[in-house]
Every structure is written in C-alpha cells, then in structure tokens.
Design a binder for these strands. Structure first.
Lengths: 105, 105
DNA sequence: GCATTATATTCGTTGACATGAATATTCATG
DNA sequence: CATGAATATTCATGTCAACGAATATAATGC
C-alpha cells in the first residue's frame, strides 16, 4: 500500500471532501461552503488529494470541478482484501472474543 | 470512517508493522529487529496502533505479543466498499480515460 | 483593458508527531 | 531480593502539516 493515500485520507477535512465527492464532481466553492471550510483550506486540501491521485480536476470557465479518481481507492480496497483472513478466520475471531472478555472481567 | 485508523496506518513504519503482523502475533523484540527499528520506536508505534484498536497485546513472561485486530481493518474495507461504484461505473471509468489521454496529449 | 468571480499560492504561527538517548518498569529466576 | 531480559516511558529536538489572512493568478464579460 501507498502510505500517501492513507495520509491524505487521514485528515478529517479531506475525508469529508472525499465523502462529498462520492456523489459526483463539484467546484471548489461548493465544497468550501458546504463543508464550512475557508476557501484556502479547500484549495489546499484538494491539492493534497490531487497529489495523492485521489481526485482529478477539470476546469470549466473560472470554476474547477474536482471529482474522485478510482485508482487509489481501488488499490486500498484490494490491499485490505489481503487481510480478509484476519476477520474471517474463526480461530482468530474466537481468540479475540476470549481476549475481550478477559479485559471486561 | 474513523480517521484515527487511517492516521495510524499512514505512518510508513507502522504500516510495515501491520504487514509483518499479518503473518501472526510477534513479540516487540522480533518486530524491532526484523524491521530495523529502535526498540523505543517499535514500542511507541505499537502504542499508537493499539490506541487505534489495530493491534492487541498479550503478555507472556517478559515478552509482549502483539497481533492484528480485525475490527478496524474490516470497517475500513467496508467503507471502501461503499465507493465501489467509483471504479465499477463504466461511464465514470470512460470519463477518466478520456481525461488521462488529454493530459498526455 | 478593467472589473468581477473563482481559485491558487504565499507566509507566519502554532501544534502534533517521529526520532534517539536515557531511564523506568515489569517479570522470571537464581 | 538481586539480577538480567524485555518492554515501556520520558524528554529534548527537529520537522512537517494545518490554519487564517492576505495576496496573486486565471478566466469571463463589459
């Protein structure tokens, strides 16, 4: 996995931007108003997201529309798939339940 | 999604620890030697991972065995699943290809 | 070309975090 | 209970990133 993807998503406001863009592309102004961010904040966070490849930009007149890019999200999803056994393995799951009961007791 | 999970994973050495633990629980010493980290580094990163719920610890004699916990990884995986349409939607995918061709031209 | 709108960038400040060295703590054993 | 092994914590330092204010740039229409 690319830590840059995770770092970009780990900032709460950027995560909110990503969640907003899930519904479709939006101009910067829309993002900064809806999420109640300063305009510079919106621009800077979008810059980081773009550097990480998580969004792409398309200009229309003076506006810049940002939209999600599939690749990093897909790769993160695939990486997590390789950990599937961690939550599907019944023995490990049982082990964990026992552990958590211990802590409560 | 919980940004704490992403923040914990976004640090490269912590990501390496998680990948090492995928194969099974290990004591701190094993981690710090294998990953060529200082002992204090290993302990501190494990502390962060533990705070994020990504690992659990079980003492055996003087050693502390750390192992992956399923929950945060599972939740991250599920969160990404809600973005599946981003990479499965053919129209968006096509749109992206066109965009990338433009940038190369 | 000027005013306006939309966005990007710069800059200084502040807070968070990674690091390494040193020290403290925990636990088994003689 | 003193010792050594394994791990955790403290502390000082340096670096980086987020923020807000201000300024710069880009594109449109008059």
């Amino acid at each position: 996995m690319n830590p840059e993807t995770l770092a970009a998503l780990s900032e709460p406001n950027r995560l909110r931007i990503v969640e907003l863009l899930r519904a479709g592309p939006r101009p910067v102004n829309d993002i900064h108003v809806r999420l109640k961010l300063r305009q510079s904040q919106a621009s800077q966070h979008l810059k980081v997201l773009k550097a990480a490849g998580l969004v792409a930009m398309e200009p229309r007149a003076q506006q810049r529309f940002y939209r999600l890019r599939a690749e990093p999200l897909k790769q993160l999803h695939e990486w997590l798939d390789t950990y599937r056994h961690v939550w599907e393995d019944r023995f490990e799951a049982l082990d964990e339940i026992v552990e958590e009961l211990k802590q409560k007791a």
